[in-house]
Design a protein around this nucleic acid. Structure first.
Length: 514
RNA sequence: UCCCCAGUAGCUCAAUCGGCAGAGCGAGUGGCUGUUAACCACUAAGUUCGCGGUUCAAGUCCGUGCUGGGGAGCCA
């Protein structure tokens, strides 16, 4: 897409309200259209008598800073656009360091002073956006291989230094959370969200290579009894109305999904191996560094699979995606290893090199009972593991990721498969250092009679689940799956300690800004 | 939702026993220099989170509300 028109001296330029550049020279009308492949602009065609789609001179496209820094050789004519990170003035020339988000590093530009350029420079401070036309040359200074020698400079958008909140210094995470709309312009959050993008791609790549199908499960749900936590009500009625539920959009209560699992199961029992990857909503009033009300979750579901296959998949997936980020986001990850968590690299290294520990719940309880460490909550078979127990197992006892599996049936949901002991279910949690539970999964109960009995035990209304139960009536098969919190995986990869720094605009109780 | 800690300049923080509101960074101005989170000098910058109380006197003590952080529960 042409964005910048290189003009000869005799050319004249006009810019239409849509950002279209027309070039008029020697009595012939030429024009180029910004943002179009064709170079033809119909709006302008009407205004000009003899429209032609021939360009005079050469179209100059913005080159991303990442490409400039990776250049093999000098480049005679380039345009670089970005935000000023720092400006350093000298007598007769200035340095501008530009970042355009394409990578962590800035590019240094050097521009000799002319009256026009000095006027433009006077308006430019940290945070301003600029376009610079010039050449990429080897830098005579230390600290960088390449720099841009600018010939022209245009300020695109100013940033008043008196009010622009980002300064040329480190800011606290808490402060930056208050300006979540500007924080991606910092090194740390730019790196975070590049990694986030790459991590999402890695997940799709992982599943594609394993022939899993990507299923889009609904975000609006009619079942308010999925048992995975408090749900957000959705309504098209005015707030405070007393209208009966029949008058609401769906004619019955609607909520935002807390999990795509039940729907994913239906597709697993048709396409074999499937996964979902989408937003999930929990209306829990939990205020911790590991919880947000809106987060992204990956939920694979495999037909003809058991709990062991399930744990294999989770381990493989975590290792694959972590390795992918190390391979493809080296600079960005290095920033986190250096400034955020000094133990990040060793932690990831341990994770990659060792097999995840697989520990039955009953054995976990025995270990916890035997240890000298005093816990606030006494250890008893049948209770759920508390945070202090999980941390002890993961961070002190084994010092690496581990699965705990075969939990008591009394503390797990109805859909988990009952084991032969009649006391435990084929459930598994994957615990990782510092974060705790990153995966929760199970083999699903595929036997209709057992499922019936479990639902009765737990007092669930079977009529709500008629379609779910159908899957066990017609060609049921053993199957298993899990849910993995995307932001928690991102915390693992980057070492950040607060989940609100791993999602662009975090939603938590009483926080719906931006 | 419960427990603990904090809130002072744009940012990060200091201010002794209740006794004149401070520093670094950032910003502005001037200077200097192929500079590297540049450097040097000067300048401006405050409802000490809000409300109420105790006191001759409150950033400091008490009550209360709000905001932020940490821990717990719940979970991914």
């Amino acid at each position: 897409m042409p964005e910048f028109l290189y003009l000869r001296k005799e050319s004249h330029v006009a810019v239409c309200p849509l950002g279209i550049i027309a070039c008029v020279g020697a009595g012939v009308v030429y024009h180029a259209c910004v943002g179009r492949n064709s170079g033809r602009c119909h709006l302008f065609s009407e205004q000009l008598e003899r429209p032609k789609t021939i360009l005079r001179g050469k179209i100059m496209k913005r080159t991303k800073i990442k490409a400039l820094l990776n250049a093999e050789s000098a480049m005679p004519e380039i345009v670089v656009k970005g935000w000023v990170r720092t400006k350093r003035d000298s007598k007769g020339f200035s340095f501008l360091e530009l970042n355009d988000g394409s990578c962590l590093k800035n590019i240094q530009t050097v521009i000799d002073h002319t009256p026009e350029i000095e006027a433009e420079l006077a308006k430019i401070g940290t945070g301003a956006s600029v376009a610079i036309e010039g050449e990429l040359v080897e830098s005579p200074g230390k600290g960088q291989k390449w720099e841009v020698r600018g010939k022209s400079l245009k300020m695109l958008g100013e940033a008043d230094p008196e009010t622009f909140p980002l300064q040329k210094k480190r800011h606290s995470d808490e402060f930056l959370r208050g300006i979540a709309h500007l924080r991606p312009r910092t090194n740390k959050f730019g790196a975070m969200f590049r990694i986030r993008s790459e991590l999402a791609q890695a997940i799709h790549k992982f599943f594609a290579e394993k022939d899993f199908f990507y299923i889009h499960t609904p975000i609006l749900t009619g079942s308010d009894c999925e048992g995975a936590g408090e749900m957000f009500r959705v309504s098209s009625l005015e707030h405070g109305t007393k209208a009966p539920i029949e008058e609401d959009f769906f004619g019955k209560p609607a909520h935002l999904t807390v999990s795509g699992q039940l729907e994913a199961e239906m597709f697993s029992l048709a396409l074999g191996d499937v996964y979902t990857f989408g937003p999930t909503f929990r209306a829990e009033n939990s205020n911790t560094p590991r919880h947000v009300a809106e987060f992204w979750m990956i939920e694979p579901e495999m037909a003809f699979a058991d709990l062991s296959d399930d744990m294999d998949l989770g381990e493989e997936m975590i290792k694959y995606t972590v390795q992918h980020i190390l391979d493809n986001c080296a600079d960005d990850v290095e920033l986190f290893g250096k400034w955020v968590d000094k133990t990040l690299m060793p932690t990831l290294d341990t994770l990659l090199k060792n097999e995840f520990i697989r520990l039955p719940y009953t054995e976990a309880i025995e270990i916890l009972k035997k240890t000298k460490k005093k816990f606030e909550y006494p250890v008893e078979w049948g209770m759920d593991l508390q945070t202090e127990h999980e941390r002890f197992l993961c961070e002190e006892k084994f010092k690496q990721p581990l699965y705990v599996y075969d939990y008591p049936k009394t503390i797990k949901p109805f859909y988990m498969r009952l084991n032969d002991d009649d006391n435990t279910v084929a459930a598994m949690d994957c615990l990782v250092p510092r974060i705790g539970e990153i995966i929760g999964g199970s083999q699903r109960e595929e036997r209709l009679d057992v499922l019936h009995a479990r639902m009765k035990e737990m007092d669930l209304p079977e009529e709500e689940y008629w379609w779910y139960l159908d899957s066990r009536r017609f060609g049921t098969v053993p199957h298993a799956g899990f849910g993995l919190g995307f932001e928690r995986l991102l915390m693992l990869v980057t070492g950040v300690s607060n989940i609100r720094d791993a999602i662009p605009f975090p939603r938590t109780p009483n926080h719906l800004e931006f």
